[in-house]
Amino acid sequence: MRTRMDRIRHTLLFEAVLMVLLILILPPLLGVSVQKIGGLSVIMSMLAMGSNFAYNVMFDKILLALGKPLLPRPFITRAVHAVCFELLFAALTIPVIMWWLNFTFIEAIIYDAGFLVGIPVYAFLFNLTYDTVFPLPQHPVPAEQNS
């Protein structure tokens, strides 16, 4: 499993890269001020960091409990990981979007739908890149398991 410090680095990098992308892309696309999107991004980032950290640790523990290797992760495992996190996160963010942007429930769902489509793609690509740039350390296999 990854170390606590590695998980913290993963979470901080995930959120920082995402916030930069959102602040660059959303204001001109939605006609919303950079300050409004920036503030919402910070709020959502704080929610995401806590839930992302806990979710990733729990996901790894579930994989280990099921006897599945942590790496390599097949496409389906990565896809399930990303989609399940985004569904959980939507349940947290829709009320925040409603409050911060003064949206109705339906408007917040529509706004959040863009994230539900885009963020799993981002999460998939980010995690694939992260595992490549920061691979898990390889531990030698004990001699009795080599035969």
Rank of each mutant, 00 (worst) to 15 (best):
P72T: 13
I76W: 13
N102M: 11
H139G: 02
D6V: 02
L136W: 03
T132N: 10
L63G: 05
I109A: 15
V57A: 12
M1W: 03
G31N: 10
M46F: 13
G38D: 09
I109T: 05
F59Y: 15
A16L: 12
L30T: 12
F103T: 05
P142T: 09
T3S: 15
I37S: 00
P74T: 07
V20N: 09
D6L: 02
F75Q: 07
E86L: 05
V117T: 07
F124Y: 15
V121D: 07
M98N: 04
M5Y: 12
S33G: 02
M5H: 05
N146G: 04
I119K: 08
F126S: 08
A108K: 01
N127M: 10
L125I: 11
S51N: 14
L101C: 04
F85C: 11
N102D: 14
P137D: 05
A65R: 14
A65T: 08
H10G: 01
R2I: 00
L71I: 04
K36F: 02
F134N: 10
L63V: 01
M98Q: 04
I119Q: 15
Y111D: 13
P27F: 03
A91F: 13
N102S: 13
Q35S: 11
A90C: 13
V141M: 04
L101G: 01
A79K: 03
L71N: 06
R73W: 04
V32H: 10
R7N: 12
V141N: 03
R78V: 03
T132Y: 15
P137H: 07
Y122V: 01
L87S: 08
G118I: 03
V117Q: 12
L40K: 03
L116I: 01
V17T: 06
T104P: 05
A79T: 15
G31L: 05
I43K: 06
L88P: 04
P95E: 13
K68C: 04
Y122N: 07
Y130P: 00
L30P: 00
P27Y: 10
F115S: 15
M1H: 07
V20A: 14
M98P: 00
A113N: 02
Y122T: 02
N52T: 11
L24I: 15
N146S: 07
M44G: 15
I43R: 04
D6N: 14
F124I: 13
